[in-house]
Design a binder for these strands. Sequence first.
DNA 1: TAATGCGCACACT
DNA 2: AGTGTGCGCATTA
Length: 575
Amino acid sequence: MSESKYRDWILETIDSLRSRKARPDLERICRMVRRRHGSDPDRTREELEKLIQEQTVLKVSYKGSISYRNAAKVQRKSRKKSDFTPDNGGGSEVEGEKAIHSSLNNNGDSAHSFTDLEEVESRDREEDSVSEPSEYPDPRPETPGLTSEKKQKLFPLNSGNGPGCCPGCGETGCAETGCAAGRGCSGKASASKDKRLGERGGGGGQEGGGSSPLAGNHETKPGQDGSGAPSKAKGVCGGAGGVETAGQEGSSSCVGVAAETEHKICQGSASSCSSSNSHLMRPKQLQPASPLVKPKLRAGRCEGNPWVGGSGQTSSDLGERLIASVRRLAEQNRASALRGETRGGHKPLGLKEILGYLTSQDGLSSEGKLTRNRVKVVLEREVARGRLRRTRCGNITLPVRGVEAAPAKPTGPANRLLKSALQDKHIGKKIHRTHRSTSREGDQNMLSWFLCVWRGSAYKTEVGVSSCLLTPTASPRDSGLAEERGMNGGVFVKSELGSLNPVNWTVSDVVSYFTSAGFPEQALAFRTQEIDGKSLLLMQRNDVLTGLSIRLGPALKIYERHVKVLQRTHFEEDD
DNA sequence: TAATGCGCACACT
DNA sequence: AGTGTGCGCATTA
C-alpha cells in the first residue's frame, strides 16, 4: 500500500486541481505535491501508480489527454451495456476496450489495469443498487459489466514505466502522457489541443497489451498495501495486543506519520491530534491539507491533520467556520420551522446559503476573500471528513450524530465511538440472536463463501485453494455447492474462520475485504474512518448507513451482507 | 513568475 | 438536456 500520507497528498492534489478546473495530470500532480510537501516527483509518481493499482486513483483519458481521478469522487452515471467475466483475465474485454479506444495508445509496457475497470463497474453497480435499497441483496457479488462505449478511458497503470513519465518533473519522454496525448486522439482534438498535445510529446505505439488477469490483481493487491500479510499489517498498525482501542489505532497512524514528516509541531497524543467530529473513528484526521493551504502556513497548529501541520490555519479555520455556519443555519431553520415561519419544514442548506451566511458574518475574513470555489472546496473536504454531511438531495447538514466543530477533546471521537460501542457490545449479540432464527444459516454460508473466496484470493498459496479465486462470476451458491461437495468442507471452513477472525483484522484488512467484496469505493471510507476489525464488529447499522458518508444502497448492502453477518458470526462464536 | 480563479465551450452520458 | 471537464486567460500572491 502506498504510504497514507502520499495517498492523501495525491488525492488532495487531484481534488485541488479539479476544484480550480485544472487538469489533474501527472505533471501538475507532481509539481503540486512537490511544492506543497516537498516530495520528490519520482516518489510521487511511484505512489500515484500504487494508488492506481489500489484503485484509489483512476487513470483516465479525457479529451485526448491523461487525467487522474479521485476514485472516491468519480460519479459515473452510465450504465454498463454488457457484462463480462473478468476471470477471462480481463484480456478479451480489454481487447475490446482497446478496439474502442484504439485512438488512444499506451506505451505498451503496461498491463491494462483491470482494477480500473472493476473500479468503475463496481461504482455502476452501486448506482444500480441505490434504486433498490430495500431489496435483500443477492449475496452473490454482481458480475461487473463493462461499458463498451466508455469514452473516458480508464488507463492502465504503467507499472513498468518507471521514470520518464513526467515532463513537468524534469524528465523526458513522457511515456504515459505521450502515449495518449501524442497520439492525437483520433483527430478529435481541436487545433489548440493538438498544439498542446504536440507539446506533450508523443509516444506512438500500441496500447499496452498485457492485461492483468484478475487473479493477478488479487494476488498482488494485498501485498501492495501491506494488508495481505497479517504480520506486515500488524506492523503497520502498531499491532499491540489486547483490546485495540481507537486511540491505539490512531496513535499508530498519527505517530507513525508524524515521525516521518516535517510537521513535528503536532504534539500530544494521537487522539488529541484527531478531530473530534465524528462518532466514528477518526484518528486519521490526517486529512489532507486543504487545497487552499498555502505552503508557508502549513506548519501551523496540530489541528485535525497532525502531519500536515493542522491543514494550514486558513482552511482549517474556514472549515470550522463552515461547520459553525451550517450549525447556525440549521438552528435558524429549526427555529423558523418551530415558529411556523418556514413552510414545508427546513430550508435546504446549499453552498449558496452557506456562502451567503459566511460572507454576511464578516465579509472578508482573516483568510482573505471567501470565494464560492474556496468555500466549496472546504465544504467538500468537511463532507469527506464526516464533519458535514451531504444529503441525498445534495443539501448540507450536520452529521446525524452530533458533530463537534470544537477542537479535539482528550478523548477523541474514535474513543467515544469505541466506548459507546463497547458498552453496546451486547447489541451485537442481540442482533445476532434476533436474526439467528431467520437467515443465520444462509448468512453463515455466505460469509464462509466470501471469506474462502476472499482469503483464497489473497492467500491462495497459503491456504492452498488456488482454484478458489475471487471472481465476480463466482457466486456464494456455487461456492457453497462446491463446499458441500467437499472442496472445502466444514473443517476447512471452520479452521479458516478461526484464523480469519475479523477481530484481528487491521484497517487494511477491512479495506481489502470490502474492496474484494465489490465495494472499492466504499472501502475507502472504511480506510478513511480507520475502521479495523474490532471497530467493524462493533458498528451498528446506523453507523454504516450514515457514518461513512457512503451512499445508502451500497451501505445497506455492506451492512446486510457483510457487517451484520460478520458480527453475527463473531458473536456467535463468543457465545 | 507561478499559482489560482473561473467563464465557457466541449465531452460525455 | 444535464453534467463533468479543463482550456485559456485574468487575477493574485
